[in-house]
Nucleic acid binder design. Structure first.
Lengths: 196, 196
DNA sequence: CAGGTTTTGGACAGATCAATACAAAACAGG
DNA sequence: CCTGTTTTGTATTGATCTGTCCAAAACCTG
């Protein structure tokens, strides 16, 4: 009996997510969100309650899309540990490249959120922390495999190396946003791989 | 003949810098700046022209203070290359530790600016890029020394390794903001050092 | 101590912010 | 085709934002 929505909620969420991703939370106005999604204010508030709620859903969606894809690369047991980590770096760099604006990457929404919001938005911080834990778990597992197979020779613990890789990934993102070119990003990733 | 200012401009700049550092550019209101500096609106606008101008000056001051100190560590020719890089990491981690709020670091203003502003503020981007170049130059020089002395055995070029270290530093900052504890940060830094 | 200049405080301007109110439009079921 | 429910567009709210205005206070110099 109710009137159906004229738009696809998931599609609108993707548009909102991308806007937050590119502009950040504070610099994104509700009007920006209207323009990006093509919806009116009423539809947005009716569907997503508030800007903050919409941001949280955007963040969740981002991690569902991105992290899930990336962890699939790490968990691919048909490949060696080194190949998996390499594939992850390649995917990250490829993402940075295809999302360039004015010679700069747009980074990673979870990194951006950590920097912009984590200190004063506990909910956002919790979502990012949860995502990070998933990533660390997968990284640790693949490093363990690589150590068992003798591919990774560092004597450091898998947990430490996972943290290290995660930091390098964040650093890659920041470097991309700073305007580093692809060969530079590849060199950073390769150097990190050699540290394992 | 003119009436002198009642405040110390440099001191006010430091307070403003710290506010931008902790809260970010967008989330800092002019009233926040008044509260932090203890100045009235008129004094701020009379002295610094605008929020954006004040931000640029804060950014310059930040890099003058921080980068200058850090590069002094890298350029200290009384120490070995490895010791210098180690000292840099120690200083960064010590800085992250002494600036913690609610179990989180407040990061680095240049990294924060890269993430929040570089894409849409060319002036801020230029200031950050200039600072980064200084850092890369010093890193490259010390790596060159380490390679000559046989302390660093990686076959990668000093330029690439400098980029790598810079990325790890950014990653350290983000990790600190994400709530990583000190041993974790130290492990990340040590792992990076081993890659050289 | 007086004149000229600057700083300072507080009120204010205009824009923009997130969010809401409300009525008209659009749809499903009976 | 009508009834009830939801969505949608528009106008508007009240708060907050950056920046300005202006008069009074404060200072230095002559």
């Amino acid at each position: 009996m109710p009137r159906p929505k004229e738009f696809d909620e998931e599609q609108a969420l993707d548009a909102a997510m991308r806007t937050f991703w590119v502009n950040g939370y504070e610099a994104t106005s509700t009007e920006d969100l209207c323009r990006a999604t093509g919806l009116g204010r009423s539809s947005i508030y009716n569907t997503f309650s508030s800007k903050h709620e919409l941001f949280k859903r955007s963040l969740v969606r981002y991690t569902e899309l991105m992290t899930t894809n990336q962890l699939a690369l790490l968990d691919d047991e048909t490949r060696t540990a080194r190949d998996r980590v390499h594939a992850l770096f390649d995917a990250i760099i490829a993402g940075e490249v295809e999302n360039r604006r004015d010679e700069r990457g747009i980074g990673c929404l979870t990194v951006n959120t950590t920097v912009e919001l984590a200190a004063r938005d506990p909910e956002a911080a919790a979502l990012v922390a949860r995502d990070q834990q998933r990533r660390l778990d997968s990284l640790e597992a693949v490093i363990r495999v690589g150590q068992r197979d003798g591919q990774f020779t560092s004597r450091r613990s898998p947990a430490e190396l996972a943290r290290f890789l995660n930091a390098v990934i964040a650093g890659l993102r920041v470097a991309g946003q700073g305007g580093a070119d692809i060969p530079t990003l590849k060199a950073i990733a390769d150097t990190a791989l050699e540290a394992l």
